[in-house]
């Protein structure tokens, strides 16, 4: 599915990713942990195509397609989805219209007919239920005045609606209360399939109790410095990162 090889990327001439390698196969869940400022969100940004990041070396392919060549919208249409660490508020753009537009553009790109109003509504109801997303929020302006947790839940609602191949969740668990964490996790677990993959960026092993990863990676100073199974998260919880970064 996703293959990252020797990825170097900088922002404002400062190198952030320094030769990162990662292979994610369909059906897998990967967790990425690591100290603040290590470059986790940067990796997510580079994958999604944020403009201020410049890739200086390396390759990223999604099912063989070089996605670094693609505009952000085309990456999304190819199946990349980033649940943002800090979702932006866009006053005046209604959540639901935005989603309808997104969905239909993605469908058009894939040569599928746009959903009818009825089909869209039905799907939206279904997914709202799945992630227990308040119907009132669906009709409001995109993230405007949403609480931190509501914003995160909206990201997962969008994820559920768009059903991407590869979903990257950047600290979606931060700011969620215990119930919300359970709901979001349940939603993600239901969305897991043999055809998609998830990358979970998180600081807390707690999330991984709910969404059990196949691999846990430690990202520090722009590189993956250790990879293990889900037990690595427990070890990190206990020992922190020092033992890995001090050589």
């Amino acid at each position: 599915m996703l293959s990252i090889k020797n990825l170097h990327a900088s922002v404002e001439d400062k190198e952030i990713l320094k030769g990162l390698n990662l292979e994610v196969k369909a059906g897998e869940v990967h967790a990425i942990m690591g100290p603040n400022g290590a470059g986790k969100s940067s990796l997510a940004s580079v994958l999604a195509g944020r403009e201020n990041y410049e890739v200086t070396e390396g390759t990223v392919t999604l099912d063989g397609t070089d996605i670094l060549e693609l505009a952000p919208e085309d990456r999304a249409r190819e199946g990349v989805f980033l649940a943002f660490q800090y979702p932006i508020e866009i006053p005046g753009v209604s959540n639901i219209n935005f989603l309808k537009t997104a969905m239909n553009e993605i469908r058009t790109y894939r040569g599928e007919a746009p959903l009818t109003a009825k089909e869209f509504l039905q799907r939206s109801r279904e997914k709202q239920e799945l992630v227990e997303f308040d119907a009132k929020l669906v009709n409001r302006s995109l993230n405007e005045g949403f609480s931190g947790g509501e914003k995160k839940r909206n990201e997962i609602f969008q994820l559920a609606m768009l059903e991407p191949k590869l979903a990257i969740l950047d600290e979606t668990d931060s700011g969620l209360d215990i119930d919300a964490l359970r709901i979001v996790s349940r939603g993600v677990n239901k969305l897991r399939s043999e055809n998609n993959a998830f990358i979970l960026i998180t600081h807390y092993q707690r999330l991984l109790d709910y969404i059990v990863p196949d691999f846990v990676h430690v990202l520090a100073d722009g590189k993956i410095i250790k990879t293990g199974g889900k037990e690595l998260a427990l070890e990190l919880e206990e020992k922190g990162y020092d033992w890995l970064t001090k050589n």
């Binding site: 990456r75 989805f81 866009i90 993605i106 768009l162």
Partner: peptide, 22 residues
């Protein structure tokens, strides 16, 4: 905001339209 919209598959022009309307 434009990036957010684009990251959901909305094309540049459409994204601009949405924002202008807003």
């Amino acid at each position: 905001a434009l990036f957010y919209l684009k990251s959901r598959g909305i094309g540049e022009n459409q994204a601009k339209q949405l924002m202008v309307k807003a």
